[in-house]
């Protein structure tokens, strides 16, 4: 079942010269784990905002054609309020997603539930479960502005997760996190994906996409350059370099060996694949 559909969608930001999305055509099915790749300014964020309805409702710009349909709703005809029950977005900067509506982490997480009219009896349960899931339950009485950057990001994630959206968008969610925190976020996201949520994640951390994503969409200049499996995209080192993305070290290792005709199979994208390949080379 298709939950996200872009039909030749063109979006133009007023303050910039070129279109930020220049005709995007794609479909994303329910339960897919999609990674978005692309250099800065390639239109990844505009793409994410289009799913959420921030484009065209809040951003300064104009739709130049096409449409976006989210779970049966045309984003141009539906309000962000309507869309927010279906789509949740987690942004890059942890501070910018705090609403300031609550003095404590618990209240910040509760804010969305209060707005969407979740009864009080259910609120407590949902908040407790989501805070335990992200590991913030012990800090629930602290101010969300007085915890570390990584914990602040987790508050943002918890506040969105608690609304139980079907589609979860994460725009570079691990930029402020240490390796442990990054792993925790990705494995949490994977768990949610296994429970049936559609995941769209923007990240520069290719090693995680190699391990977790079902599909990768490569953006540049507001267009989809390539759409395929992680294996197909991450092992194409030329394609990645052309689009200003550093290929994974394991892939580069495989490529170097291939040049010397020692590597015969597909280029590796995970450490596991590299180890298996190297065994064959050594033999």
């Amino acid at each position: 079942m298709t939950v996200i559909e872009f039909k030749d969608f063109k979006w133009h930001y007023f303050e910039r010269e070129e279109h930020d999305l220049q005709g995007v055509n794609l479909k994303i099915k329910k339960g897919e784990f999609v990674g978005l790749l692309g250099p800065s300014g390639s239109g990844k964020t505009a793409f994410c905002y289009s799913i959420m309805g921030v484009v065209p409702h809040l951003s300064q710009g104009r739709v130049k054609g096409g449409k976006v349909i989210i779970d049966g709703l045309d984003t141009q005809d539906s309000s962000i309020g309507e869309l927010s029950s279906r789509v949740g977005i987690i942004m890059q900067s942890p501070k910018s997603q705090l609403t300031g509506a609550g003095l404590t982490i618990e209240e910040e997480v509760a804010f969305g539930l209060e707005n969407t009219g979740v009864p009080r009896s259910e609120m407590g349960k949902r908040i407790k479960s989501v805070l335990k899931r992200v590991g913030l339950y012990e800090l629930r009485k602290r101010s969300p502005f007085e915890v570390s950057g990584g914990q602040m990001q987790k508050v943002g994630i918890a506040s969105v997760l608690v609304l139980e959206p079907k589609i979860l968008i994460l725009d570079e969610p691990t930029g402020y996190l240490d390796p442990g925190g990054t792993e925790a976020v990705f494995s949490l996201v994977k768990k949610l994906n296994n429970q049936g949520k559609t995941i769209i994640i923007v990240t520069h951390k290719l090693e995680y996409l190699a391990r977790y994503a079902d599909r990768i969409i490569l953006f540049n200049n507001g267009r989809v350059v390539r759409d395929g499996s992680p294996q197909e995209i991450l092992s194409d080192t030329k394609l990645l370099k052309r689009n200003k993305i550093d290929p994974l070290p394991v892939t580069l290792l495989g490529e170097a060996l291939k040049k010397k005709r020692k590597w015969k199979q597909e280029l590796p994208i995970t450490v596991k694949e590299a180890v298996e390949g190297l065994r064959k080379v050594v033999k």
């Binding site: 959420m52 921030v54 809040l58 309000s79 962000i80 309020g81 309507e82 927010s84 029950s85 949740g88 977005i89 942004m91 900067s93 910018s96 997603q97 705090l98 609403t99 300031g100 618990e106 209240e107 509760a110 804010f111 969305g112 539930l113 209060e114 707005n115 969407t116 009219g117 979740v118 009864p119 009080r120 609120m123 506040s159 969105v160 609304l163």
Partner: peptide, 26 residues
């Protein structure tokens, strides 16, 4: 400048949702 970000953060949490509002406290 933060107004824009704050607006997105609020909207994402259903601030303009038309549902009957509830409260964490009694």
């Amino acid at each position: 400048m933060k107004v824009y970000e704050r607006t997105i953060a609020l909207e994402v949490r259903g601030f303009s949702s038309t549902a009957d509002k509830t409260s964490l406290y009694v």
